[in-house]
Amino acid sequence: MLAVRSGKPVTFSAQALEQAQQIIRRYPEGQKKSALIPILHLAQEQNGGFLSVEAMDYVAEMLDLSPIEVYEVATFYTMFHLKPVGRYVLEVCHTGPCEIKGAEWLLQTLKSKLGVDEGEITPDGLFSIRRVECLAACGYAPMLQCGERYYEFLNTEEKVEALLEHLRQNANT
């Protein structure tokens, strides 16, 4: 197992720090650890999409936990990326109901359009592709998640192309 140190310290923006304090405050007295998962989400956001060792150590300190407790949790959940990822992570559901509607086709199409394999990052740093399990969109397959949003019924090349174009546009603005 290799751990990724980014070599640069992590800092939360003032707004993120305030958000973190708000999260901690909402749990009962003495239950600070409950804030761990929400704050790891925040840390991932603040750290360019992935959790470096520095980011996790920072969270550990914030919540008075030992670093290993944070590593244990971060490695358990699939939403936490422990290696750098593209700016847009295209997370394609490949579970049964999606598979019968063309999840493998969607994966293939994305791979050939972007020229990268699963787990890789496009040279422009914009995209990476990842398989995930059921996202609770089974009736709207094939689909993928990107950031906050689900993109559903991606069943034609045109729709896939339009999605990629839309994301590229977004990146420029």
């Binding site: 197992m1 751990a3 060792v53 030992s66 670093p67 290993i68 590593y71 244990e72 490695t75 358990f76």
Partner: peptide
Amino acid sequence: NERVHGILWRGEVSEISTYI
């Protein structure tokens, strides 16, 4: 006082490790 190793990852690929 402070454990430095633990169980990382999930399922069949879980492992005992210090991570760093």
